[in-house]
Simulated assay, not measured.
Amino acid sequence: MSEPGSPSWSRQVAAFAVHPGFVEQLLAEHVDDGAGRCSSPTCTTSGGYSRARWPCGMSQLADAAVDLIRSRRRT
């Protein structure tokens, strides 16, 4: 996954932002499980043995896409 603020990150955020329903789904699936891990079973560490720390990369991308969607509505 790209680093926040990188050109690749910005392209991913822009791609997500054109699909608001998809972004909403990601935000619903990728939430804190109460133990500081992502609740999505598809969101694992690189070794695949445990769930990724939350906020995971997908939730961060989705949050950034929401920000972009909102900023476009204001203009």
Score class of each variant (00 low, 15 high):
residue 12 Q to K: 12
residue 12 Q to H: 10
residue 13 V to A: 07
residue 13 V to M: 06
residue 13 V to S: 07
residue 13 V to F: 03
residue 13 V to P: 04
residue 13 V to G: 06
residue 13 V to N: 00
residue 14 A to C: 07
residue 14 A to M: 01
residue 14 A to E: 15
residue 15 A to P: 04
residue 15 A to M: 08
residue 15 A to T: 02
residue 15 A to D: 05
residue 15 A to R: 01
residue 15 A to K: 11
residue 16 F to I: 06
residue 16 F to C: 09
residue 16 F to E: 14
residue 16 F to D: 12
residue 16 F to H: 11
residue 17 A to T: 03
residue 17 A to L: 04
residue 17 A to M: 05
residue 17 A to H: 07
residue 17 A to E: 04
residue 17 A to N: 09
residue 17 A to I: 08
residue 18 V to A: 08
residue 18 V to E: 15
residue 19 H to E: 15
residue 19 H to Y: 14
residue 19 H to T: 03
residue 19 H to N: 12
residue 19 H to L: 12
residue 19 H to W: 12
residue 19 H to F: 03
residue 19 H to I: 02
residue 19 H to S: 13
residue 20 P to E: 08
residue 20 P to K: 08
residue 20 P to W: 02
residue 21 G to P: 09
residue 21 G to M: 06
residue 21 G to Q: 13
residue 22 F to C: 05
residue 22 F to A: 10
residue 22 F to G: 10
residue 22 F to E: 14
residue 22 F to T: 06
residue 23 V to Y: 02
residue 23 V to N: 04
residue 23 V to S: 10
residue 24 E to V: 09
residue 24 E to M: 03
residue 24 E to F: 06
residue 24 E to L: 09
residue 24 E to Q: 14
residue 25 Q to C: 08
residue 25 Q to V: 10
residue 25 Q to R: 15
residue 25 Q to E: 14
residue 25 Q to D: 14
residue 26 L to N: 03
residue 26 L to W: 04
residue 27 L to T: 10
residue 27 L to M: 15
residue 27 L to F: 11
residue 27 L to E: 05
residue 27 L to I: 13
residue 27 L to W: 05
residue 27 L to S: 07
residue 27 L to C: 10
residue 28 A to G: 11
residue 29 E to G: 06
residue 29 E to R: 11
residue 29 E to Q: 14
residue 29 E to H: 08
residue 30 H to M: 07
residue 30 H to I: 01
residue 30 H to A: 01
residue 30 H to L: 00
residue 31 V to L: 05
residue 31 V to I: 15
residue 31 V to D: 06
residue 32 D to C: 00
residue 32 D to T: 02
residue 32 D to A: 02
residue 32 D to W: 01
residue 32 D to H: 00
residue 32 D to Q: 02
residue 32 D to G: 01
residue 32 D to S: 05
residue 32 D to R: 03
residue 33 D to C: 01
residue 33 D to V: 07
residue 33 D to T: 02
residue 33 D to H: 08
residue 33 D to L: 01
residue 34 G to W: 00
residue 34 G to V: 00
residue 34 G to Q: 02
residue 34 G to C: 11
residue 35 A to L: 11
residue 35 A to M: 09
residue 35 A to I: 11
residue 35 A to H: 13
residue 35 A to T: 15
residue 36 G to F: 09
residue 36 G to P: 02
residue 36 G to I: 15
residue 37 R to A: 10
residue 38 C to H: 09
residue 38 C to V: 02
residue 38 C to D: 03
residue 39 S to I: 12
residue 40 S to W: 01
residue 40 S to T: 10
residue 40 S to C: 04
residue 40 S to F: 01
residue 40 S to M: 01
residue 40 S to Y: 01
residue 41 P to T: 13
residue 41 P to R: 03
residue 43 C to F: 14
residue 43 C to R: 13
residue 43 C to Y: 14
residue 43 C to S: 01
residue 43 C to G: 11
residue 44 T to A: 08
residue 44 T to V: 15
residue 44 T to M: 13
residue 44 T to Q: 12
residue 45 T to I: 03
residue 45 T to P: 00
residue 45 T to K: 02
residue 45 T to N: 05
residue 45 T to S: 07
residue 45 T to F: 02
residue 45 T to Q: 00
residue 46 S to I: 12
residue 46 S to D: 15
residue 47 G to C: 07
